[in-house]
Amino acid sequence: MPYQYPDATASRRITELDIERRALWAGLICSIFGLAAGLIFFAGERPALFGRWSVGLVSAICGATAAASSSAYAFRFILRHREPWLRRIPTWRQLITAIGLILVHAASSVMIILVLFHLFQQAFLGLRLDVLAGGLAVSAVTGLTAYLCLVATARTSAETLSVVLGIFMAAGVLISMLLAEDQGWWRSMFSFLGTSQAGHGSFWTFNLTLIISGLVLAAFTEFLTRDLVLLSRTYRCRPALRRYRLARRLRPRPRIVRWCLVVVATAIVGIGMVPVNVSTQVHSGFVQMASVAMIILLAGTAVLLPGYPAVFHMMSMAAVAAVWAAFILWHDWSYYNLTGFELSVVAIMFSWISVFIRTTAAMTRDGEERNQARLAEESQLPAKS
């Protein structure tokens, strides 16, 4: 059954001012919650900025709670009204999308808060706060986190979600590298960071980053598919290609693109849930599944995404060639080890995905502008008598 997305006018319009107003209320309520939590946790204590039951730890806990709550509220009562097509997809897909958005904002908040307070502790060595100062610090961090996460969730699009995904994955992997107890982890493989031998901090950070990233990629796929469906409705074969029968039969294939990305998202979740030391075969199977799906996307853009600029298809072919060259450098020439090959492939894939998203967003905006211009012209035409 084809995808069906209703027009935005089918639901009550939520303005930008509504988002800001609700975000301010969320920030105020969560700041009060953070103040109460800080006063309770720090009663009779002089907490440090970072460490066990420090201002940073309590702020991270309260910030994660505020981020999850505000993101859930924004998805349920704002985003689903701003993007009415979300209400038409199956409930289980709505749930996966919501879970991905909630988890990525909560996890990002925890990482940012802990890193910032760790840096502050290094800058103000030996500083301890009293109960009031500690409570106010937690209150400020919690309120700001709630405000930012509600705004970010309410204004989610394929383009913004791709940026969130890229930053979150890079930050999570970098932190897991820094937390690795074995400093020579890179001599083995990239997946070593997700094993218990790398240390508990690296193990949990790396695997949770992959699991949450897979869920976010699944949520991102919904928004990207919606843009591709809109493009497929307005697709017209280029005049220069109409003389070719094969070109006239080509149409954008949002469903195939979606399933390829869903397979990649599922594989990323599987890689995080089954570390290489638990089952090498299952872990490798998920890696191969993601690789095959991405190769299909890269090699099939001319068939799956007709109408895109020729330079985009050339870049897709160049990405396939770059992956093959990276494999030759590792397997045949031993230029670098397996970790170098894995990092090269990840960099190539995410670079292509970033270009794909930005190109799709640009084409969607251009299509919307053309539709608005056409409607404006039609409204100015004199009515027939």
Rank of each mutant, 00 (worst) to 15 (best):
M1F: 05
M1Y: 04
Y3I: 03
T9C: 01
R13S: 09
E16F: 08
E16A: 11
E20M: 08
R21L: 14
A23W: 05
L28D: 00
S31P: 04
S31V: 01
I32W: 06
A37R: 02
A37I: 06
G38R: 07
I40E: 02
G44E: 08
V55C: 06
Y73L: 14
Y73T: 06
F77Y: 15
R82C: 07
R88E: 10
L95N: 10
L101F: 13
A107W: 12
S109D: 03
L114R: 06
L119R: 13
L119H: 08
G126P: 06
G126F: 07
R128P: 00
G135I: 01
A137L: 13
A140V: 14
T145H: 03
A146Q: 04
Y147E: 01
S157P: 01
G166H: 06
A171N: 10
L174R: 10
S176N: 07
A180M: 04
Q183W: 05
F190C: 00
S191G: 11
H200K: 07
S202N: 04
F206I: 00
L210R: 04
A218K: 09
A219W: 07
T221Y: 03
T221Q: 06
F223V: 01
T225H: 14
L228R: 00
S232L: 03
T234W: 03
R236I: 07
P239T: 10
Y244M: 11
R255A: 14
I256T: 15
V263R: 02
I268E: 09
G272N: 08
M273G: 13
S279K: 04
S279P: 11
T280W: 13
H283I: 06
V287A: 15
A290H: 02
S291L: 12
M314W: 11
S316Y: 01
M317Y: 14
V320D: 09
V323S: 08
V323H: 04
W324R: 02
W324D: 00
A326N: 11
A326M: 12
L329C: 14
W330F: 15
S334N: 13
L343N: 03
V346H: 01
V355P: 00
V355G: 00
A362P: 00
M363W: 00
G367S: 15
G367L: 10
E368Y: 09
N371M: 10
N371R: 14
Q372N: 08
E377K: 14
E378T: 03
K384R: 12
S385K: 05
S385L: 10
S385V: 09
